[in-house]
Computed example of a mutant assay.
Amino acid sequence: MGRVSGRSCIVTGAAQGIGRAIGEALLEQGADVCFADINGDKVATVAAENRQKANSYGGQVTHAAVDVTDREQVRAMIDHTVSQFGKLDVKFNNAGVNKPMNFLDVTDENWHFIMGVNGLGCMIGMQEAARQMIAQGTGGKIINTASIASRQGFDNVAPYCASKWAVVSLTQSGARDLAKHDITVTGFAPGVVATEMWEEVDRDLMEIGAAERPGQAMEEFSAEILRGRVAQPEDITGTTTFLASQDSDYMTGQIVMIDGGMTLV
């Protein structure tokens, strides 16, 4: 019996990186998982690749293409998951974007793009998941992806930092409001993680002159990590599975730092 056996879970931003790792770790512990992402073709491939794993651990897999800033698409994703698995127990609001720009160069478009996905997308995901859980009358868990950038501002990713501070606030607000429905709201804050998203950020930082060569930004950030290395997605999933399991039932409104000791709060 796995730690999340029989639990119906949705993970957004699950076509790659941390989101995919979260979903795969849940499968290994017996959960039913909907892998969701704006890239419908890619997430369909991820789901297909994990179907055998799910069967071997006693769970099920489905997938959904979703723009997390579109409420109707989010509702359709939840409806699809419930039609496949019969309920919704755990919702990971993990989809996120970043597009570095130096502080004085940040445009309205850059701000709205990042805040839309990371802020509004989190809010919509929380609301619609909570509505489904309330209708079921069985409680549930909502888990949000924050960042080390939710604890301090960085000069060339200001909108991203603001959006992840928003995730922390939404987590606390949701925890206060949804406790009466037996719904817990928690989150986790990764540091530097070796994923496709970080590779994109690395290229963007070079384009705006914040780095001179590939890998420089990651090396500089890594120098401050007490554990002495960049995280892999698998370093994150022990905590995310814990947050999805009954082991964390008495925790709500909290953000767990998983950054190797980079930010001490």
Rank of each mutant, 00 (worst) to 15 (best):
D32K: 04
T171M: 01
A14P: 04
A31N: 01
V168C: 11
A64I: 13
A162M: 12
V46G: 08
Q152I: 00
L226F: 14
D108C: 05
T241C: 13
M251G: 10
S173M: 07
V265D: 15
G153Y: 08
G139V: 09
R203T: 15
P190N: 11
R229P: 02
K164F: 07
F113E: 15
M262Q: 09
L104S: 05
T45W: 14
L26P: 00
G187Q: 05
A149M: 12
A231H: 01
G253R: 03
F92I: 02
W165V: 08
D204V: 09
A47R: 12
A211I: 01
R71Q: 15
H63L: 07
L26Y: 10
R3K: 14
T186S: 14
K180W: 14
F154T: 04
G209V: 11
E196V: 12
I148R: 02
D79F: 03
A31Y: 11
M262C: 08
Q216S: 08
I114M: 06
F113I: 08
A31I: 08
Y250E: 00
V4F: 02
M77R: 04
E200V: 09
S163V: 04
A194G: 14
V82I: 14
E28Y: 05
I236G: 04
I225S: 03
G153N: 11
E219P: 01
E72P: 04
A189M: 11
N118R: 01
G125E: 05
T195A: 07
R51C: 10
S173P: 00
P214N: 13
I208K: 09
S56K: 12
G116P: 00
D249T: 14
A64N: 11
I148C: 06
R20F: 02
D235C: 12
A149T: 13
A166V: 07
V157Y: 04
L205Q: 04
C161D: 09
I225E: 03
T240M: 02
R131F: 03
A14D: 07
C9P: 04
L170V: 03
C161I: 07
Q52P: 00
V43L: 12
E49K: 13
A162E: 05
T12M: 08
K141G: 02
W111L: 11
T237K: 05
D259I: 09
V11F: 03
G174Y: 03
S173F: 00
A189V: 05
N50Y: 02
V117F: 05
E109K: 15
A64Y: 13
A217K: 01
V201E: 15
I236R: 03
M115I: 12
I225L: 07
A44K: 10
T252D: 13
F35N: 15
M257Y: 11
G2V: 05
E196M: 08
N93F: 07
R203S: 15
D249G: 15
P233S: 01
A211S: 14
P159R: 11
I236F: 01
A149F: 04
T241M: 07
G191A: 10
R20K: 15
E219A: 15
E128D: 08
D182P: 01
D108W: 04
A15I: 09
C122P: 00
